[in-house]
Computed example of a mutant assay.
Amino acid sequence: MPKISTKGQNMPESPIRKLVPYSEKALKAGKKIFHLNIGQPDIKTPEVALEAVKNISLTTIEYSRSEGSEEYRTKIAAYYHKNNIEVNHDDIIVTTGGSEALLFAFGSIMDVDDEIIIPEPFYANYNGFSTASGVNVVPVISKIDNNFALPPISEFEKLITPKTKAILICNPGNPTGYLYSKDEILQLAALVKKHNLFLIADEVYREFTYDGVKHHSIMEIEGLEDYAIMVDSVSKRYSMCGARIGCLVSRNKELIKTAIKFAQARLSPPTLAQIASEAALDTPQSYFDEVKTEYVERRNTLISELRKIDGVKIGVPKGAFYCIVELPVKNTDAFAQWLLEDFDLNGETVMVAPAAGFYSTPGEGLNQIRIAYVLNKESLIKAVHILKEALKVYKD
């Protein structure tokens, strides 16, 4: 029998999706499942985007330019201008989701066995992107006790080697909901300039910030033009996860020139989805105001309900729509599977994402879960009540 590649064998399973077979079995058994495991918002996609798709008059769905249509990239640049980010359309490559933007960035700046430093816990697919690119993640651990704030810069600096090529952050963070302060961004900026590294920021949750705290983009920092690489996406901003449109943004001309070669190799991003995404840029501010209000209420509801459970520790999010929760169990992988296979409360159960998959350090996060508060408030209250009752009877 032909052998599967070592890279393929080393590709990590998604901690979010690997429990799907158990959830499907639970559904077939008649259980209702509250999905706290995946960041699929129930928020409606803006009507302007849906109308653009409905009213397409194309007779042929052609390839777009490899870097995305100039018209769309120009409108993206105008959107960034409103957010104090000064770029032009030539600084932007449209990608098939933010995932492809990260893969293009990794391929453009790192060779096999190079290293990238990432504060953990981090978006689980960063592990997969690194494995696919043949590069090594070097983690620096942030702690739930200080709400997953940026670890001391000294912790980053001592990990830098000749193979280190970049530092990657997610801001606001998935899975923690942490929002980096301007001072933290400036510290990272000084560090990458000192050691001649790239700073990659995954900023797909930019609109989702709470408690009056402002989002600070790495693209706003003067003097970082050659070092900063921003990853973005329409998925969460406009509740368009299935559109699979993102972008890679940098003022580093050599970086963009290199990434375009990767874009050419996959031909072009989806034409129809670009049309929808371009139209979404005309979404009125009232849409975002309403969505943010809704998420603040959901966050507050979730945190309030979780605090009623003995032995639970919570990282309170300041952005995005996730939080990390520490449970009084030894292994949340086993607990999450048990919830689907062996537990229900009046025919209902919950699906959560075990947090160990959001770490690359072995043994970290074993007693934590990530909760995506993408359900309505009534459902969140029910889901946390089920979780509370489940913890009363669960045996490690």
Rank of each mutant, 00 (worst) to 15 (best):
G134W: 11
G134L: 02
V135F: 09
V135K: 12
N136W: 00
V137H: 02
P139W: 06
P139L: 06
P139H: 04
S142N: 07
S142H: 04
K143D: 12
N147G: 13
N147L: 08
F148G: 11
F148N: 11
F148M: 11
F148K: 07
A149G: 14
A149D: 11
A149R: 15
P151L: 02
P151M: 03
P152H: 10
I153H: 15
E155A: 11
E155K: 07
F156I: 05
E157P: 07
E157R: 12
E157F: 03
K158E: 14
L159C: 14
I160D: 05
T161Q: 13
T161N: 14
P162I: 10
P162W: 10
K163N: 11
T164Y: 09
K165V: 02
A166H: 00
I167Q: 13
N174V: 07
N174R: 01
P175G: 12
P175N: 07
T176N: 06
G177W: 08
G177L: 08
G177V: 09
Y178D: 08
L179P: 14
L179I: 06
Y180F: 15
S181P: 12
D183M: 08
L186N: 13
A189R: 04
L191D: 03
V192P: 00
K193M: 08
K193Y: 11
K194A: 14
K194I: 10
F198L: 05
F198H: 14
L199W: 02
D202H: 13
D202A: 06
D202P: 06
Y205M: 07
Y205N: 04
R206T: 08
E207V: 02
T209F: 06
G212V: 09
V213M: 08
H216S: 09
S217P: 09
M219H: 03
M219C: 09
I221R: 00
I221G: 00
I221L: 00
E222K: 15
G223F: 07
G223E: 05
G223H: 09
G223N: 07
L224R: 07
D226W: 01
I229A: 14
D232M: 03
S233E: 07
S235W: 08
K236R: 12
Y238H: 06
M240N: 03
C241G: 08
G242V: 00
A243D: 10
A243S: 14
A243L: 14
A243F: 11
R244W: 15
G246P: 13
V249C: 13
S250L: 06
R251T: 03
R251A: 08
K253R: 15
K253Y: 04
E254G: 08
E254P: 02
L255D: 05
I256C: 09
K257D: 09
K257A: 14
T258M: 10
T258K: 13
T258I: 03
T258Y: 06
K261L: 09
A263H: 04
A263L: 07
A263F: 07
Q264V: 10
Q264T: 13
Q264I: 12
R266E: 10
R266W: 06
L267N: 13
S268T: 15
S268W: 04
P270D: 08
T271E: 01
L272I: 15
Q274R: 03
I275C: 06
E278V: 01
E278I: 01
A279Q: 02
